[in-house]
């Protein structure tokens, strides 16, 4: 497997009724990259995320991750792709800790049927991992609380914690800074940089241009389901089509 084959998106399209939300999108990501995906509202960023994470079947085209085809959401997580949602989707009835634990596997009915010492040991290990993960993100003190009762900013973090519990190689973050205040955004940027520093590859959808330009080494711009620009932040910022897409056609 060459470095180029980490994530391959190959002429991917997705229709909703008559509308083409993602149209013939192709790109590849190398391992270890921190890439941003931007575009105006309705450009198809979330749809593209859903396709990459296997949550939606494509109309045509394919996604491959480390040489394996992405077919379905749970299978994608086994390949090493984890994601967060644009509108936070936690498990409201579970506690903060359980939200993280839910992503740590152990779903065998057979093994769950007998509470053997071995199983308890595994569960202890899971609890320990979940606890340290929460501690790492500064959520450990909330462990017992129902997920729906904690503040918005921490729900965002918890969603990231749940994704990290899958021990992914590629993390897809859909507008992680939306709705956060300035300190929270700064802390988030710090966290993203820290995760990237540990060797995690990230693909980031974000409207906060400041954050994007700051963090990402590469920016892909989507408009009406197509890639209209792809390059370093500086290149993309100067691109005429990107300016048009965001600000409308230049005034005469």
């Amino acid at each position: 497997m060459s470095a180029q084959e980490f994530l391959v998106v190959d002429r991917l399209s997705r229709d909703f009724g008559g509308q083409r939300a993602v149209a013939e999108v192709s790109f590849t990501l190398p391992e270890g990259a921190l890439t941003a995906l931007i575009g105006p509202n309705g450009a198809g960023k979330t749809t593209l995320f859903n396709l990459v994470a296997g949550a939606l079947p494509p109309t045509s085209g394919a996604v491959r991750f480390r040489g394996q085809p992405v077919l379905e959401a749970a299978q994608a997580t086994r390949l090493g792709v984890a994601r967060t949602f644009q509108n936070i989707r936690l498990f409201p009835g579970l506690s903060v800790l359980e939200n993280v634990l839910a992503a740590m596997g152990g779903h065998s009915f057979w093994q769950g049927s007998f509470r053997l010492p071995r199983r308890l040991e595994e569960e202890r290990l899971r609890l320990k991992r979940a606890h340290y993960l929460l501690e790492d993100l500064g959520l450990a003190h909330l462990g017992e609380q129902p997920a729906r009762t904690i503040p918005f900013g921490q729900q965002r973090l918890l969603e990231i914690a749940r994704a990290l519990a899958l021990q992914p190689r590629l993390l897809l973050l859909d507008e992680p800074a939306a709705g956060l205040n300035r300190t929270e955004t700064a802390a988030l940027a710090e966290l993203i940089r820290r995760l990237h520093g540990r060797g995690l590859s990230l693909l980031l959808v974000e409207h906060d241009m400041h954050l994007v330009m700051h963090l990402a080494s590469r920016v892909i711009v989507l408009e009406q389901g197509r890639i209209i620009a792809d390059g370093t932040p500086a290149e993309v910022q100067c691109d005429e089509r990107v300016r048009t897409a965001y600000l409308g056609p230049p005034a005469e």
Binding site: A73, L94, E98, A102, A103, H107, E123
Partner: peptide, 22 residues
Amino acid sequence: SPVGRALKAIQGDEGAAAAAGI
């Protein structure tokens, strides 16, 4: 067991449960 958790996760949000590898 973790299965009980997975079941409640499915009840809470099937899409998110799938994204959590369930």
